[in-house]
Design a protein around this nucleic acid. Structure first.
Length: 564
RNA sequence: UGGGGUGUGGCCAAGUGGUUAAGGCACCGGAUUUUGAUUCCGGCAUUCGAAGGUUCGAAUCCUUCCACCCCAGCCA
């Protein structure tokens, strides 16, 4: 269901603003801080911002909100650019808040000159005391009425490096008694002697988010500034700043006939996953996962490595909607999105994860043949391939039971199944080792059972996949399960308590049909009856194939079996 | 207990005073099937956080109450 742009409250606001002539077109921005890797939550924001602009004929910038040099890096910035592009979006302009540092400084001076900002020397602790509490108003700083000229001189000295970190800050002069704590003389600039990954060492004062963001929006001509719910209180400050500085006409932008409007939407969390950067870093650093792109992570790089397609993530985002309510999405929604995409677009192949050897005792030892099979059961344009067959084949251990129940349609002693696209076989003998483990099956095949028919017209209910032993390619296949066994691991102080010990299962003796290895390494497969797979982007080599299971196929048998 | 938000089926989510409360995911039936997949068809909220009220008529308007989330970084 590639959803055609569902309507939601932000879309309604934006299209009304165009209809009413408030703006000529919509102009949005996706404003990440380059201090970590993007995850599924960011994908929602990316799809919202870029999608809105695309659908309404507007534009969208990628803007790095890089005002905190100690946490930001070029590596993160590059990765974010890659992920946005990978998701399939093109930014109108690539912007950096750090490119506005000169202008921002100028606006700060304007506020000082208007008596709307002052330099304060209260310590962090004192400032916290002066700020008051949720229920009590704050009180004015003794520096609040410092003369304009002095403020200006002090601020310039701050910029010139004449003070130590933490010694002075620039504050807006608003209202220490405001019930909205964001308005209690918020800090606009702080001193940081840190190297900025883009601005270098040019500055030792850096603007705060609230001061930077609204002005960046205005400078770019952003019409709709979309952000998450926790910024609702900050909106008053956003508006206050823009109302109190002098923007040139072109600052409001070619599109903008009015100031940008901040609109907040709810975050979406996925069950059994983590979005907190801090906790993700812990998992990476402590080695619980293998890097930011571990396929069990819902980082965009992780999902990509796992085999999720950009379209599936876009569809997922369309599916979950945009509202003013934080939501918790079930894992099946994401899985449905990728299954839906890959069902239509992935080539079929045979792969056996846990091989059990089957010898066809009445098939000549030297004989081989091959079957021409379709790459997709419903899409002829995906072509055909040749599937080699011989006396020995591998089947999946799951497809055999020593003492199967009646409704097990697969192989068991004396039972008959069809090797998909090939012959019907009957299990004549089971070979077990000393420990009782089944190590081989001796079967007879019915030479008259090709093409899905049988000579006597008997129906064969069970159909299983297989790989010719003589032609099989050895591979390592990694099968993933949820990383956590609790729906909301983020609520835990120590997320490692909720780690699922079985989140990764390695099948290091998997057998694949030979056509798989000839494929484009970017390709996605469906191993019939098993799931969707892709080559691992880090560890795969043609001589030593490594694949990831993106997601299993739906399995109503397993579901029924689990229910008992 | 200050301010800002949110409450529609298991999870999302349409709906903005007028016939039986969209749709997706999940779930339960059944059909088709050389993937126990896909596809198809059917079922799945007398009820919209609760209680009052207005109205011929309310999930939609009013009142009160309840629950949950966010805000007291020189983070974003």
């Amino acid at each position: 269901m590639s959803k055609a742009s569902p309507n939601h409250f932000i879309r309604s606001i934006a299209s009304n603003d165009i209809k009413n002539g408030k703006h000529e077109y919509v102009y949005t921005r996706f404003p990440p801080e380059p201090n970590g890797y993007l995850h599924l939550g960011h994908a929602k924001s990316i799809c919202l911002n870029f999608g809105l602009a695309k659908d309404l004929g507007g534009r969208c910038n990628l803007r790095f909100d890089d005002t905190n040099p100690e946490k930001e890096s070029d590596e993160y910035m590059q990765s974010i650019k890659d992920s946005v592009a990978w998701l399939g979006f093109e930014w109108d302009k690539l912007c950096y808040a750090s490119d506005y540092f000169d202008e921002l400084y100028g606006f700060a001076l304007e506020l000082i000159d208007k008596g709307l900002a002052y330099v304060d020397d209260l310590s962090a602790e004192q400032m916290r005391e002066y700020r008051g509490t949720l229920t009590e108003p704050g009180k004015n700083s003794p520096n609040r009425d410092r003369p304009v000229a002095e403020n200006r001189a002090l601020f310039e000295q701050m910029r010139d490096g004449e003070f130590a970190e933490g010694e002075l800050v620039l504050r807006a002069k608003i209202d220490m008694a405001s019930p909205n704590i964001s308005m209690r003389d918020p800090i606009l600039y702080r001193i940081r002697y840190a190297h900025h990954y883009r601005a270098g060492d040019k500055w030792c004062i850096y603007p705060m988010y609230d001061f930077t963001h609204c002005i960046s929006d205005a400078l770019e001509g952003i019409t709709h500034s979309l952000c998450t719910l926790e910024f609702q209180d900050n909106r008053a400050l956003y508006d206050w700043i823009l109302e109190n500085i002098t923007l040139q006409k072109n600052h409001i932008g070619e599109a903008g006939k009015a100031m940008p409007r901040q609109i907040e939407f709810g975050r979406s969390n996925l069950e059994y996953t983590l979005a907190s950067k801090r906790k993700l870093i812990q998992l990476v650093n402590e080695g619980h996962v293998n890097g930011w792109d571990d396929p069990r992570l819902t980082t965009l790089v992780g999902l990509r490595r796992r085999g999720y397609t950009p379209a599936s993530i876009r569809n997922f985002c369309a599916e979950i909607g945009v509202t003013k309510k934080d939501s918790v999405i079930e894992m099946t929604v994401l899985e449905n999105a990728i299954r839906h995409d890959l069902e239509a677009n992935a080539k079929r192949a045979f792969g056996v994860l846990d091989p059990l050897k089957v010898v066809l005792t009445n098939y000549a030892a030297e004989q081989t043949e091959s079957f021409v099979v379709r790459n997709h059961p419903k899409d002829e344009s995906m072509g055909t391939r040749e599937l080699p067959f011989g006396r020995e084949v591998y089947i999946d251990r799951d497809d055999f039971m020593l003492d199967p129940p009646e409704d097990f349609f697969r192989l068991g002693p004396g039972r008959e199944v069809r090797l998909r696209y090939g012959y019907a076989i009957r299990c004549e003998d089971v070979i077990q080792d000393d420990a009782g483990e089944v190590v081989e099956l001796r079967c007879s095949y019915d030479p008259l059972s090709a093409q899905g028919k049988t000579a006597d017209g008997r129906k064969i209910k069970g159909i299983i996949h297989w790989v010719s032993a003589a032609h099989a390619i050895d591979a390592e296949v990694r099968v993933y399960d949820r990383l956590f066994n609790q729906a909301n691991p983020g609520a835990l102080d120590d997320v490692t308590e909720a780690l699922n010990p079985n989140s990764l299962t390695v099948f290091d003796n998997a057998k694949l049909e030979p056509s798989v290895i000839e494929a484009d390494p970017q390709q996605h497969f469906q191993f019939e009856r098993v799931g969707y797979f892709c080559f691992d982007s880090q560890d795969h080599q043609p001589a030593k194939p490594v694949l990831n299971r993106t997601v299993s196929l739906r399995d109503s048998w397993a579901k029924a079996a689990a229910k008992g």
